[in-house]
Every structure is written in structure tokens, then in C-alpha cells.
Design a protein around this nucleic acid. Sequence first.
DNA 1: ATCAGATTGATGATGTGTCAACAAACAGTA
DNA 2: TACTGTTTGTTGACACATCATCAATCTGAT
Lengths: 160, 160
Amino acid sequence: MTTRWLNADEERAWRGFHRLRGDLTARLNAELAADSGLTEADFAVLVYLSEAPGGVMRARELQRELAWDRSRLSHQLTRMERRGTVERRACATDARGLDISITAAGRAAITAAAPAHVAVVRHCFVNLLTPEQLATLADIADIVADHLEEAHGRRATGDE
Amino acid sequence: MTTRWLNADEERAWRGFHRLRGDLTARLNAELAADSGLTEADFAVLVYLSEAPGGVMRARELQRELAWDRSRLSHQLTRMERRGTVERRACATDARGLDISITAAGRAAITAAAPAHVAVVRHCFVNLLTPEQLATLADIADIVADHLEEAHGRRATGDE
DNA sequence: ATCAGATTGATGATGTGTCAACAAACAGTA
DNA sequence: TACTGTTTGTTGACACATCATCAATCTGAT
């Protein structure tokens, strides 16, 4: 098999994306940590929990929404429980299940962190781009996500 | 301060990018590890070393090219040296410096890994997108990179 | 009722990334 | 020479991600 290497335009796009990924991740993590003491992983979990009715969600459901590995979520919840932002409780309807609930401290943390987080997302990303660029990026994300999802076995995540 | 939240289009773009970032990272790491035993970090280091004259580069230079933290590179080199893909040597011209050289095993590893890596990048990314989409993505990456670079020391606290 | 297989979750090992603190060597200056 | 500040790289502590393995529970077929 002959390898078809990337041409100049493809290379520019790929390396650009690669760079973008690393830089933005680092920046967002740093800002979030400095502003609120939360990590990106903490933030992601708390976003879902804070939007759930009663601030409670099944671990399984959380995992599905986040598209995370089982053990990744488990480890993350262990750390967050230690830091006091969430609590684990036995699930009433399924003895193997877990109800994860956001604590008062967790709710306070996400409430305090969200505005600064959005500000950084705007300042370092959204506000720099035109509506057309944002739309194209969203399209790209959908296309790639569909492909990866399909290749991995179809798992109806259901969200947009 | 009043927070300006993301509208629907902005939200779609941001969440899409966020998702894309995570999914592609995971996929590439998994493929690379399965195909060649290398990690993305290994691969990045070996790409630069293999292109350098003599397969040798100053650690400082490597760090600058990769845009990595000092300690990140140091830890990475420790791991790679243990795995036998690179070697550290004292630098002749600067006693604090280090010459990093790729080993025969390292060269073999990157040579073996590169075609499969490109194939995955094509299959999961480049080939899914139109030239226009790739160009827009590259533009976006440049814009954001320029901004982050420029605002190197400042904090984004909502000022615009 | 029982048993096989699937689902839900925890755990330990290992690799990765970031921060703060440190040490050694260079460069410029008094 | 000695003093000061910068550059270069290491180390330890901690957080995160993935893999393999394990345990408990549920489900469905017999």
C-alpha cells in the first residue's frame, strides 16, 4: 500500500487544528483553575448535574452524556467527592446503580466559575470568529463526530 | 458585570469543537498505540528529531518547536529514554544544555508508525472534509493562535 | 429456581500534563 | 574576583486518561 501523505493545504489544516487543540485546552484549564479552582473535567460534570432536576443524575446517564469511559467517570467522581463538590448515593431503583448529586459547594463553585469561563471562551475563541466560520466549524464537528460514532459502533447519544 | 452567554449558534460551534477535540484525541492516541506502541507525545518528539540533521537537537530547540513546557519535555524525555527511542547527551557548546538524539529503535518506530498515523488522520478527519472546510479551519486556527500568542501574559477577564 | 450473559461500577497500574521549587551553568557588571 | 540575574534542565506532587481486572446486580431463557 502506498501512503498518501497530506498536501500543503491538508497539512496546514491538520497542524492548525492540532495546535489549536493543545493551546486552547491549556489556556482554558489554566483560566478555570485560576478563577475557580475547578478543572475542565470538574466543570463538565457540574454542568450536567446542575442542569439535572434536583441536581441528581444516574452515573450511567452522566457517563452517556459526557461520552466518557466508565472508569474515567468513576475516578473523576472519587476526586470530586473528596473535594466536596458531588456526592454518591445508592440508587433506589437499581442496586448496582449510583445517584450522583451536586452538593451546595459544587453548585456554588459552578455558579461562580461559569461567567469567567464563558468570558474566556468568548475572548479566546467565539468573539474572534465570524458567524460563517463558527457555522463551518460546527459542521465539521458534526461530520467528524458522526463518522467516529459510526465507526465505533452505533451508540445513539441523542444529543445534537 | 453582566455575562453575555453564548447564543445557539455559538454554543453549537463551541460544544462541537470541544467534543471534536476530545474524540479525535482519544481516537488518535488509541490508533497510534495499537499500531506502533507510540503515544502522540512520542510521535511529536520523534517527528522533529527524525527531521533534524543527524537526528540530534538541543532540548531547548525541541521545546521551542513543540511549544511545550520545560518540565513536560523533561518528563517525556525521561520516559522515552527508558523506552529506548531517544538518548540524552551532554551538549558540547553549553554545559547546561542537552543534545537529544533519536536512536535506531526510535527511527524504526516512527518510520513504521507514520503511514498508519497519516491514514487515520485522513480517514477520521481530512478525507471527510471539503477543501473549503479545511481552509476555513486552518484560518480559524491561525486567528486563535495569533490571539493567544499576543495575549501571552494577560488574563481574559471579560474585557474586550 | 437456576444459570449464563450483560450491565453497572470500583480499583490498581501506567502514561501524560502542569505547577512550584530547585540546581547548575552562563553572561554582564562592578 | 564576586555579585546578580537569566537560561536550561530536573524533580516531586498532584490531577487526568486508559487499560485490564474484578465484583455485584440485573435479565432472560430454561
